[in-house]
């Protein structure tokens, strides 16, 4: 494991912890898209189908369990927790899941490495992860006033993707058989979706102002 991969995993982990902590301590999910959180739960479920069949490392298994557990907990909080769910703004979070899920599923069925259930599901999870942030970005754009923790959450998620790309570049040069163009394309698309957000995030940070996205 290289430093970029480890840093990427850690920012990913922090992003989830920041979100869980925000929801748990202030009992509010204001500004958080349930649609995005449900898509992530689906991403992790379909990607980690191998969790009990292929052992890679203890680190790998533990991280998978954390991502599965945290994503389902977040969905549970927003849907079921009697205080948290009151802060969920359903009318603003209107992105339709199937606009993303169905095209990704079709793409995964046709464009994959191997036509087996596990492989198609794994590929589907890559495609879906690439676009799963969209409902959240749309919500940020709509609400405009973004609290610090939500801003940090999205920033950490974007940083995780950027670090994974550095990891792939590193692996490409150090591991001769490391070629995986589906991962590459999905990963680059995913990172590009954050470009706009990053721009405004750094602007607000530089000027020491509250983060606001243009209408």
């Amino acid at each position: 494991m290289n430093i970029f991969r480890l840093a990427g995993d850690m920012t990913h982990l922090f992003s989830v912890l920041v979100l869980l902590l925000k929801i748990h301590t202030i009992k509010s999910c204001a500004g958080i898209s349930l649609k995005t959180q449900e898509l992530y739960a689906l991403v992790f479920t379909t990607r980690y189908l191998d969790i009990f069949t292929d052992f890679i490392s203890l680190y790998n298994t533990v991280m998978k369990l954390i991502f599965l557990g945290s994503s389902f907990s977040i969905v549970w909080y927003i849907r079921r927790h009697k205080i948290v769910r009151r802060s969920y703004d359903k009318d603003q979070d209107t992105f339709r899941h199937y606009f993303l899920v169905i095209p990704c599923l079709v793409l995964a069925v046709f464009i994959n490495h191997k036509f087996t259930f596990k492989e198609v599901m794994w590929t589907f999870s890559l495609y879906l992860e690439a676009v799963a942030i969209l409902p959240q970005l749309v919500l940020l754009q709509r609400t405009r006033n973004i609290d610090n923790l939500t801003g940090q959450y999205v920033f950490l998620l974007g940083a995780y993707r950027a670090l994974y790309i550095l990891n792939w570049i590193y692996r490409h040069f150090t591991e001769p058989h490391y070629v995986h163009w589906i991962t590459w394309i999905a990963g680059v698309v995913q990172t590009l979706l954050y470009a706009d957000f990053f721009y405004y995030y750094f602007q607000s940070w530089k000027n020491n102002e509250k983060l606001q996205l243009p209408a």
Binding site: S57, F67, H180, T183
Partner: peptide
């Protein structure tokens, strides 16, 4: 290792 590319990542 015999792990396929990408499968050892999260």
């Amino acid at each position: 290792t015999t792990t396929e590319p990408g499968k050892d990542e999260l």
